[in-house]
Design a protein around this nucleic acid. Structure first.
Lengths: 211, 211
DNA sequence: TTCGGTTTGTTCCCACGTTCACAAACTCTT
DNA sequence: AAGAGTTTGTGAACGTGGGAACAAACCGAA
């Protein structure tokens, strides 16, 4: 489920506040979802709560971490060290959650050797060697759209089976490979869409419904 | 609909390849969706196709742009100019699609005046004035999680009604305000989840189903 | 031990989105 | 002009996910 990471974050917040036990209602409001939905999600993982009491925060946190696979170490490669790749390499949210950036790759050979976030940028040709050396399963694409499919293909050929794509293109991959797309401008466009509808609604209200 | 931006991108690609007309099948495969779904989505906007022929790429592109609200100009403010805010300010995908970054704000006063992407960083206190001056309706939050809710509240107070949130926290907002959340580490966690299940599946297969 | 209060796990129902399948409508050839 | 071939738009079935409601289970007090 895509909501598990949200629950995990909420649990971490509770733990920081030294709250050891919580009800589904509390956790649900912290995660911004319905309590029935949360209980159903959690029951899907197993029976980790106690009726009449609630959930043990730390125990539940461990169970969700284990379910997601955060108890193990995930080596990650980032391809395309432009503005976004640079930001991703420095993003602390990755390293603090079991993800370890093992290499930064860029096709522009003039940038090879440049130091970013404590790692030297390496040439894209080293992808396969790095993947095999570190057992990398997850790749991040932060290249321009034109290069994304080619990078993706070579990632898959090297053995990567999960890709996080920031380039504004749909990637086609063989079965067994997962792709998640984060499209920054699409997000803004969706907001603009709703914003425009809100504006149209208020304009209609201002005109009056007398028409 | 959240798929409209994807269709729009696909149409732009077709237009660059100088393709003037396309069938729902072609456009659907370019957008990575089912053709029936695409036709239903488009018919929801109106009857912009011709039976037996297909869709006029440019005409359809204009209609979708209009529906999303991209025919008008959307001023945007970005709050929190760390690594991510820096990358967002430089991201060309925003400016090329009708979104205009009018101000970069940061609470750290020592950064005020610094030039990023052709704009001077300004103090967070100027938010309200900027929103009113430019008629800003969309705000981007790229601050640490701890500051996000406070920034959000002040955005809403200043009159912003659509927020794109990159901070890893759930934001609570009053009715009428839209929030979209982009959580980078959640995306990786979801990939790890699937990756782990794939690994477990292959391990079971290696053990043999003879048990 | 028993009873009242609380909270989980689960069942049932509803609504939405997705997909299939087909009629309507258009083009082109003969 | 008529028919064959395409392609859209839509009606109907299907499956999935969400929400309300309730029974089972636990705690604490008497």
């Amino acid at each position: 489920m895509a909501r598990l990471p949200v629950y995990l974050r909420a649990l971490n917040s509770l733990l920081e506040a030294d709250i050891r036990t919580c009800s589904s209602e509390e956790l649900a409001s912290a995660a911004g979802v319905n309590s029935a939905k949360l209980r159903k999600d959690l029951s899907y993982l197993g029976s980790y709560g106690t009726r009449g009491v609630g959930y043990d925060v730390e125990y539940l946190r461990y169970q969700i971490s284990r379910e997601i696979g955060l108890t193990q170490d995930w080596p990650v490669v980032i391809v395309g060290i432009g503005n976004l790749g640079h930001a991703l390499a420095n993003y602390s949210g990755f390293s603090s959650r079991g993800f370890r950036t093992v290499a930064l790759l860029d096709a522009d050979s003039s940038r090879t050797g440049e130091l970013v976030a404590g790692l030297k940028i390496r040439g894209f040709g080293e992808l396969s060697a790095i993947v095999h050396e570190h057992g990398v399963a997850i790749g991040v694409i932060a290249t321009p759209a034109a290069a994304a499919q080619s990078v993706c293909d070579q990632m898959v050929a090297a053995g990567i089976s999960s890709i996080l794509n920031f380039a504004p293109t749909v990637l086609t991959v063989p079965d067994g490979v997962d792709v998640r797309m984060v499209d920054l401008s699409s997000e803004l466009q969706i907001l603009a869409y709703h914003e425009q509808r809100k504006a149209a609604a208020t304009a209609a209200a201002d005109d009056g419904v007398v028409a």
